[in-house]
Amino acid sequence: MTPNKTVFITGASRGIGRAIAIRFAAAGYQLALCCRQNTQLLEDLQQLIISQYHTDCLIFTGDTGDYHQLEAMISETIARFHHIDVLVNNAGISYIGLLTDMSPDDWQHIVNTNLTSVFNSCRLAVPGMVHEHSGKIINISSVWGCCGASCEVAYSATKGGINAFTQALAKELAPSNIQVNAVACGAIDTEMNAFLSEADRIALTEEIPSGRFGRPEEVAELVLDLAQKHSYLTGQIIRLDGGWI
């Protein structure tokens, strides 16, 4: 168990974020969780965590791409728990379609949600970590941030931005004993991939050397490992993709 450690997780109401929250709760962390609009799902998760894992859990609904909204969430978290030891940036949306069909508003929305949110959370959480001379920042990225995907230009651009952000911030924060890493996920079996037809799922599975989609719980296990260990591992983009890319 990890007494008096606090993790702040964005995009925590479902999928990978929910799995990460449950894994950290099982490890004894205090949790602060946020999502953009799925308040009921987040409330259900909060009740599960409190009743099953007997640890404290704050929840927030708001836009992590809005600096002032996130500032209020992080301020309340610090007021309650006094510090944030681990920051997990998981909030993200996808957009499937041709670049020429994408509106400027669509572009700005995905950039704010996927990339600006990472700046916002780090800008707000890092000073406390520097003061404590300790901290872990784990950004949830994608293999498409490493190589790009057709019809996912905006998504690939934001995830590529997260990868570069991770590597640069790691260099800034290493002297303060703060490690910054990213997990570049491959095909993970979440609602984000629910649009795939059965035929598409089979075809995609055949491309993956491991022969299956990844599970959210596998992402969560890796994130917890990065949070608890590896003080010399920083600035890394760790692909979790079954050998796909």
Rank of each mutant, 00 (worst) to 15 (best):
T6H: 12
G11D: 09
R18V: 01
I20F: 08
A21H: 01
Q30W: 01
Q30K: 09
L31R: 06
L31A: 09
L41P: 00
L45W: 04
I49L: 08
I50N: 13
D56H: 09
G65M: 04
H68W: 15
E71Y: 08
I74G: 10
S75K: 13
A79G: 08
F81P: 00
N89S: 13
I93P: 04
I93N: 05
L99D: 11
P104D: 11
D106M: 09
D106N: 14
Q108Y: 12
H109Q: 14
I110Q: 15
A125T: 06
G128W: 08
N139D: 12
S141N: 07
S141I: 00
C147S: 06
E152Y: 04
A157H: 03
G160S: 03
I162M: 07
I162S: 02
A164K: 12
Q167E: 14
Q167R: 15
Q167D: 11
L169N: 04
A182N: 05
V183P: 01
A184Q: 08
G186I: 00
I188Q: 01
D189H: 02
E191W: 04
E191T: 09
A199H: 08
I202T: 15
T205N: 08
S210Y: 08
F213Q: 11
E217G: 15
L224N: 09
H230N: 10
H230P: 08
I238Y: 07
G243S: 03
G243N: 00
I245L: 14
